[in-house]
Design a protein around this nucleic acid. Structure first.
Lengths: 191, 191
DNA sequence: GTTAGCATGTAAGGAGTTACATGATTTT
DNA sequence: AAAATCATGTAACTCCTTACATGCTAAC
């Protein structure tokens, strides 16, 4: 029950791991920092935050009652100890959905908190997923060559080239990762 | 009411415009021919077909009762006159969603049945949509430079480059389109 | 003759959006 | 003091997936 939006929860926990934030800012970060191109509405974010509160994975940051700020409207959230544990669990899981379109970029965005082994597994999983799709598309476009007009072939060629570029990009990341066998720990070790 | 899945209906009408087909095959074509990378389940396709039947935009192709084939299980659908009209309406609409991520590739896939003017409008709308997003992402990544680790910057750079490539691709298509001011009609005029 | 793939369909539910409603704070 | 933007939240609805259920047909 209450098995709400696992991916969204993951993303929120990850962002709050960096620093406490209020909902409005979380949304902006989700729309830009992560992957680059997501659009999330408040209608999904606020209920998700409510759920995280109920599960006690996040908590409201108490504001000093006599504090200097007058901005009482904003509700700042921070991770609880349980929330940090849960995030560590999630970041350690490299399940087969981790390299699907929807999840991959979120996982990558938190690679700084992911172990070397899991990073490699996800990158390679993603690569073989893309290669598998490329094979399918190529086969299909070979079969449909006669009925394809200029527009659909342009579309297919662009799709193919984008996938090929992503494979090359992944290969660079994998190469770097193989050089980095000694896990350097959290790059942002400003704590 | 019954305002079901406008995009899916559009795609189905467009595919049936080429030739009659049964549901199973429609799904395969939707997953490959269109754009390349969609995955649609029967749970959405069959109810959509039912709706199209109810609206009389498609009809079951009657099989000759004494025909040679024994494959009675398959239900082949074809466009009705109303369905063709409806498809013409949809293909003539270049509303602002036509250049959003979900719709753009479907519209492009049916460009052979779209007028020159609408094609240009959609291509240019898509281009400016992408450029607008590029501007946002670049601004965001300039602001977040300090907190970005190697992985998130790699992700953002890849996103940027992909968008830039798509803009260049669109510009080629637009250039060709401008050369083609005299609409050559349906390229696949095999009827 | 039994496994694998073709073919159709339904019920329940998940993940999200849109539109609405409200109010505080900053800018003009 | 009006307008824009920041900030939070809810209810209804949309579109789609998953899991299930069924039967035909081809291959081994």
């Amino acid at each position: 029950m209450a098995r709400r939006a696992a991916l969204l929860e993951f993303a929120v926990l990850g962002l709050l791991h960096e620093s406490p934030m209020h909902g409005y800012e979380l949304r902006k970060r989700l729309n830009t920092a992560l992957g680059g191109f997501r659009a999330l509405s408040y209608g999904s974010l606020y209920p998700a935050l409510r759920d995280l509160l109920d599960k006690q994975w996040v908590a409201e940051v108490p504001r000093a009652s006599g504090g200097s700020g007058s901005k009482r409207a904003r509700i700042v959230y921070e991770l609880t100890a349980t929330g940090k544990e849960r995030f560590q669990d999630l970041v350690a899981q490299a399940g087969p959905n981790a390299w699907e379109d929807d999840e991959f970029d979120v996982h990558l965005a938190f690679f700084a908190r992911t172990t070397h082994e899991v990073r490699l597994r996800i990158l390679e999983g993603r690569r073989s997923r893309l290669e598998q799709r490329l094979a399918q598309v190529r086969e299909a476009s070979a079969r449909n060559r006669e009925r394809a007009d200029a527009y659909t072939s342009a579309l297919q060629r662009h799709g193919e080239e984008s996938a090929e570029r992503e494979v090359r990009w992944l290969e660079e990341l994998i190469a770097v990762e193989r050089g980095n066998t000694a896990d350097p720990g959290s790059p942002t070790s400003s704590r």
